[in-house]
Design a protein around this nucleic acid. Sequence first.
DNA 1: GACCAGGCACATC
DNA 2: GATGTGCATGGT
Length: 222
Amino acid sequence: MSELHDGVYARLLAHYGPQSWPAESPLEVMVGAVLTQNTAWRNVEQAIANLKDAGALRVEALDKLNDEALAELIRPAGYHRLKARRLKNLARCVVQQHDGSLEALFQFDVESLREQLLSLNGIGPETADLIVLYAARKPTFVVDAHAARVFKRHGWIEFEADYHAIKDFFESGLEQDLALFQEYHALIARVGNEHCRKRPQCEGCPLRDLLPEGGPLEPDTF
DNA sequence: GACCAGGCACATC
DNA sequence: GATGTGCATGGT
């Protein structure tokens, strides 16, 4: 692990302790990954609870439920009609191409699994990587807005860096270890969410002593 | 009542 | 191939 990652990871882990994805099953991870697109996690929780109450948190149930009924259940997470179609795309893929078995889908290696997910309408790079890392439990680094913001503001990566450049930055500086990738991503999301928002709140941030002279860097836009 | 949260697909240039 | 826009809700 590079010196930078070593220092950041150690500070975050010491400050927050181990994190975990708040889900009870791989399917719940996948559904949560879609529902949290452009949406704060607290808005996703009620939608997941609605799906559980309706007995709809099963691959076959998601596949069979009509669009309107599914949209109504996930309404609290926002973009409900759009996300209902995305969840059904995912469920249909598992039913038709993998005999309804997530284990069958997850037996592919990281790259081919990632490609299959990316081929689905509604699954982009971040959602695909979230599913690979937390549902399929294979080491691929998830880049989210928090990771980009935290690392750009500290001057550790360029403001122009795109998803793949940032993903490479992490994957080339870390051991290819599932638990490390899961933990590090979750810790970065936590510190990004609590301290490195559009208006940074560096007071009490565990990475405060690593800031460049003059405080966090500000791009023209975010 | 404006702003924040902050991914993806698609149209357009 | 970069840029802009629509998708929708709930909390601050």
